[in-house]
Amino acid sequence: MIPMKISETSVAKIEEICREFDNDKGELINVLHKAQNAFGYLPEEVQKVVAQNLNTSLAQVYGVVSFYSFFTMVPKGRYPINICMGTACYVRGAERVLNEFKGLLKIKVGETTKDDKFSLSSLRCVGACGLAPVVLVGEKVYGRVTLDNVQEILDEYKETVPV
């Protein structure tokens, strides 16, 4: 048995998710979606428990986690920022918007700010091309984003009480 760094309640949670899918390894992607929803990300420890419960290897689980861009092994910020870099957004200036976010937050794509507040990633097309360029903060969609909007968007997430 591999020593676990995560709490017993977390292990129980993962077991519950796996049971929901009958511990079927064919449901690995659905299990990982649920686990990521529950934990925010998929660290090695979580992957180990998933592998054990689905009766598959850690290599198999890790292979899937690292293959799909939706899964992450590092925690995202409380407000994950996603910039659409689909073609429609690209030709309407998404790259400049992305650079503006990078500059203001002083992080690169795939990173999280030191206070864990924002993380920055790019994604491919949310299908709202009429609003290009599009930025998502969590599930909220911002359309026709200009360089001036970037600071305004960040300001919306000013926290009065530290979380």
Partner: peptide, 25 residues
């Protein structure tokens, strides 16, 4: 319903089928 997880290649039908089986697409 089965969910994708952000891989363009999964639009290719054999890759899609592997992804549905819980494998790398």
């Amino acid at each position: 319903i089965k969910y994708g997880a952000g891989a363009f290649v999964c639009g290719e039908e054999t890759a899609l089928i592997h992804s549905m089986e819980g494998l790398r697409g």
